[in-house]
Design a protein around this nucleic acid. Sequence first.
DNA 1: GTGAAAGCGCTAACAC
DNA 2: GTGTTAGCGCTTTCAC
Lengths: 352, 352
Amino acid sequence: MSPSSASKTPTIQDVARRAGVSAATVSRALSAPEKVSDSTRAKVTEAVEATGYAINQAARSLRMREARTILVAIPNMGNPFYSTIMDSVVREATLRGYGVLVANRVGNDPTQWLRDYFSSNRADGLLLFDASLELGHLPEPPRQKGLLPLVLSCDEIIDGGFNLVMTDNRAGAERATRHLIDQGHTRIGHICGRLVHQFPNERLLGFQDAMRKAGLPIRQDWLFPGDHSMVAGVDAGDRFLALSDRPTALFCANDESMIGFLSRTRAHGIECPRDISLVGFDDINIAENYWPPLTTMRQPRNELGRVATATLIDILEGTAPSGEGLRIVLPSELIVRSSTAPLPATRQAVGL
Amino acid sequence: MSPSSASKTPTIQDVARRAGVSAATVSRALSAPEKVSDSTRAKVTEAVEATGYAINQAARSLRMREARTILVAIPNMGNPFYSTIMDSVVREATLRGYGVLVANRVGNDPTQWLRDYFSSNRADGLLLFDASLELGHLPEPPRQKGLLPLVLSCDEIIDGGFNLVMTDNRAGAERATRHLIDQGHTRIGHICGRLVHQFPNERLLGFQDAMRKAGLPIRQDWLFPGDHSMVAGVDAGDRFLALSDRPTALFCANDESMIGFLSRTRAHGIECPRDISLVGFDDINIAENYWPPLTTMRQPRNELGRVATATLIDILEGTAPSGEGLRIVLPSELIVRSSTAPLPATRQAVGL
DNA sequence: GTGAAAGCGCTAACAC
DNA sequence: GTGTTAGCGCTTTCAC
């Protein structure tokens, strides 16, 4: 395979020598083909193939002061919702010639661990999944050189200055809740997502919107705290079981907490949708094959990942529309399966 | 924040100037503190903090000919099994000072996409999850300079030369099947994992081991083809439903295909474990909260990710035991939940 | 359209 | 122990 006797990986010099041109010309032929004559380009192309040359990214990064790499920060990689997004992120980034680095928070300085990636020239931009974890700690101003955060897919409310790509959480939550109302339910509760400093997030707001518009009361004891995890759903199930006066339907901030709730309550004889109707959010892979199949708001995860990545790279390359507090909102979609059912007329009559 | 008026990110020269030493000394103080006097070290430390210096990885990589980065190749990132492993991979790598790059296959040359990462000096080593996708295409010899593959968590059978970190798939599969046998089942089938070139994989082998030892027949029409996906499980469900003579229990190559199977067959009135007992493999997060809660072989996913990463880095740094066809096998564990039940005596009596 | 030369920030010989 | 020097492989003026 290796053409020359030297076992080193070929450099641009090797290509240049073989093509009978200078290294500068090879560089140009590769990154700006139009600046080079046809014959030269052909010679270089041949030489590249013959030598098996691949660019040394480290050298390029050093010289160009850019890593051609984006950093993806995920709070909880095990979450199936995020892991699916990752797929489209990596795909889009690869297509555009960017590498994808993954970061976990390690250590206890919430600022430093992200910052280091940039100051050490390892990444040019940041894709932050789920704002709750880090947003408050991000260095100011957020858009300082080399730190271009792009937040996506959070249901928290983000104050300006950050570039966002997200689903229409509030409208989606309202749609989900309305589905319950349309089915005749009036006694409706909510398993909440993460609340930052007790502030309502977008999905809670959407839930409230729907309830208010329908003239339905929002009962505090039917508002279950949560954090998008399955155990939060299990906890909500416990609280539900302890209730003397129970709702007949629940809007869950995401599918995982819904699954936790279902699992716990079913173990205590509560049947869904016979005894309780549930709508979730996300439409994770398993939603369709759970029992019962989950009614849920589908987020366009592939689009989310693709658009966020494309936008970030556009910003990095200076081709983004503006780069100033961009806000791209993608629509969600109600997927009706079997975890919701009309409230039986009998129960409706007696006010249950 | 920025101490000097220049807005550039500080270099090692800035630190040197501030500490009143040479750049070489700063470099030494940082990477080999024992080679430098106490007082110098103190001055350098102070200067680093004052300037907010962070090393430029691109420059370091260029100079050292190593990227301090590992590449993780995952065939299907959406799979909850893999995404959980990723978490421990990133954690361990970060602890050891390595970055984690994620790769997806893009384009159609199965060799090139991985190779490029190394020849371009972007990654020093490879963590290959699931061998089926790429192993046959990996360049030979596999352990050529700069290409140190480490394969983990595949249930395929890998011929030597690769470094493996994996679960005891064969023994685990045998254990799972034995659990079914212990419950009185004799009519047992299997939803297969990926078969490479029709060769039995380790889990199929383990299934066969258990059946053979128990003197039970392995029926071809109860061996359902699969690929670890949920739809494969759904397909298996269809085949099962079409059977005139059905097994009473199934060992599923993984939890996801088990879930697909459950979902499809339940929609047709088959109740688990009343009508069929099922054991899976993996113990994915949702296994506990599925309905019924899944009996399954737990893989030590965190350990898998941690050990694989640690081993890879050990190899890269030359501190691994050998680096020659290493094979680390981690134990799996039977988790009994509710998807399996003893075969009712009545059905047993009539040979069902 | 192409080449020569400089330099990105770092580390490793080699002096002292 | 510490400084000086060279050079990793690339891109980019600046000449021609």
